[in-house]
Design a protein around this nucleic acid. Structure first.
Lengths: 338, 338
DNA sequence: CTGAAAGCGCTTACAG
DNA sequence: CTGAAAGCGCTTACAG
């Protein structure tokens, strides 16, 4: 159906214009000196015959492919996609395209993808994952191209970007305070996750040493279960505000509270973490939550890899980008002093 | 930190081996005739110095970049990611890498990405989206590379792959029948979606003309609302089985039933559509649902674009791939004849 | 002001 | 059995 019609090259333009290929090249690239009419004539002929320079040929010359690789083991894409959107946004005007490589947790597959990208002369690689305290199953140090780590653990001395868990947690807890909640509980994921412990540390610091922290799974079911623990008892021990380690837990908490006839946000305020729309916006009431601004994180990762690819200096180290609060109904504006 | 150490080329290998570059090329590619010792010696030297051929140079020669583009307007990635996983799986052993281009619904952005991919000499483009009855905001017909459409509307005479909505719906309804449900209702998305009407048509055909079909939004809220309509009335009019147009609606239905004390699956069986884990698996009880096998669809799309890129004939037209049933608790195996 | 030549990194006829 | 030459599509000194 679609015959790989051999594409029009600079030679075709040269022939059509009756000049040499060097002249065409200079005309189109606005380099060299030539009569402005010649230049314009060549440009218009090039446009007429639909000439587009072969990027591969240029890459070979410039040692620059205008291509980067995004390596991820986050198959589900919950973190990767917003990141990818930001990267793409930052790089598209520079003419940079992105290879997406999903490697699961397979070292062999990772190596194949990395080698394929290097063979294709990517200008850099952005590594990303689903947690900030684990690295991808492949060693990216010592590669002949720059690497930026985003939302995954980076090598020693590398450039690593991540969300500021502590600051995000502080935002959540401040919010609960600002609506008058004082008896807070924190329901979150396993202690083996740095994200869980960082958020829990912030909670302990702000809510007081006696405030309850429950570590478990990152699931709705865990949120449910914790409501039984926290609320199926009498009176004044009950929390009036729950900060959840992610939106799934928060959804479980909200659902379980509703089943008990405990009103959110009138009786108890709930704040989640992640701003994962599908969960946060569909919960009844919709979740007030923390957004890690992963798209912005992606944008910065894109700009950073570009800086490195173009030889500009970038300070290595771990850079934490701020989260922000997204207000919905589960912890809305009304103050509720008891 | 990471100095773009100028990579080792075939010349370096030639020098190290004391032979010409042509000999190195032939040795490494197992072409030409030469002493097997020479070949082995060169291979081992190449390995020692870490030589990897520059894929760009080869592409220029072969007019084949071993690169394809995946164009999508499904920013959320719900459909794109499983598809991408399948594509990647099908192509990675062939050494083909995938450019992911998220174009939202912006024709300008789409054109930029398509041009960038063509400039980089992609061997083909797979177009995908979030619904099968809308096309991407860019005309992909007449491109100098083959195009395969997957889960988005294709141009006239193109190769288009999609999930078989009708067959999927039939699976769902058969399931409800097989557990003894006879008074079925169908709660689904807007009539403007081909997926909704195809599934509804199958439902009407199998459940009878009088069976209730409710068109609305693809949301949990709509599922909730429909339960009020269907169940807040007396006795025998109530459905004993609900087939939902997607998992979000099904979740709303299940939640609303539970709130009314109607047990799922004991009193009413519910089947969803999409097998979107985050929704289907977290619903209480977890959803029995239809999986569109998007990963398999991606795999076939990948193999098809490869066929086209390598000049093998592919029959054009719309190809519908079968869905399959995923059984969880919301419509489990127990028969419940009333 | 314009063009011939050399070269990016590779491969493939073609000589020897 | 091995190498010099030409060429993929482009750009950039260097002549003229």
């Amino acid at each position: 159906m679609v015959g790989r019609s051999s594409r029009v090259t600079i030679h075709d333009v040269a022939k059509a214009a009756g000049v040499s290929v060097s002249t065409v090249s200079k005309a189109l690239n606005d380099t060299g000196r030539m009569a402005v009419e010649t230049r314009d004539r060549i440009k218009s002929i090039a446009a007429d015959v639909g000439f587009r320079p072969n990027a591969l040929a240029r890459s070979l010359l410039f040692n620059r492919s205008f291509t980067i690789g995004l390596l991820t083991n986050d198959t589900y894409g919950r973190f990767t996609l917003p990141l990818m959107a930001g990267i793409s946004e930052a790089l598209v005007d520079q003419g940079v395209s992105v290879f997406l490589c999903a490697i699961e947790d397979d070292p062999g597959l990772a190596k194949i993808h990395v080698d394929a990208m290097l063979d294709k002369q990517v200008d850099g690689i952005i590594a990303t994952g689903k947690r900030i305290d684990r690295s991808l199953p492949v060693d990216l140090a010592g590669l002949p191209v720059p690497v930026v780590y985003a939302y995954t653990a980076g090598a020693e001395g590398s450039v690593t970007l991540t969300a500021d868990d502590m600051q995000g947690a502080e935002l959540a807890i401040s919010r609960l305070h600002s609506v008058g909640r004082r008896k807070l509980a924190h329901v979150t994921g396993p202690e083996s996750f740095a994200s869980a412990t960082e958020r829990a540390d912030a909670f302990r610091r702000m809510a007081g040493a006696s405030a309850i922290i429950l570590h478990g799974e990152w699931t709705e079911a865990w949120g449910h279960q914790c409501v039984a623990t926290l609320f199926d008892r009498k009176g004044s021990d009950r929390p009036d505000g729950v900060f959840c380690g992610n939106d799934q837990i928060a959804r479980g908490v909200v659902d379980a509270l509703r089943e008990r006839g405990i009103r959110v946000p009138e009786d108890v305020s709930v704040v989640g973490f992640d701003n994962w729309e599908i969960v946060a916006a569909q919960t009844r009431p919709a979740l007030t939550t923390i957004d890690m601004n992963l798209k912005e994180l992606g944008r910065i990762a894109g700009l950073t890899i570009l800086d490195l690819a173009e030889g500009r200096a970038v300070t290595p180290g771990l850079r934490k980008l701020p989260c922000n609060l997204v207000v919905r109904q589960s912890c809305d504006g009304g103050r509720r002093e008891n």
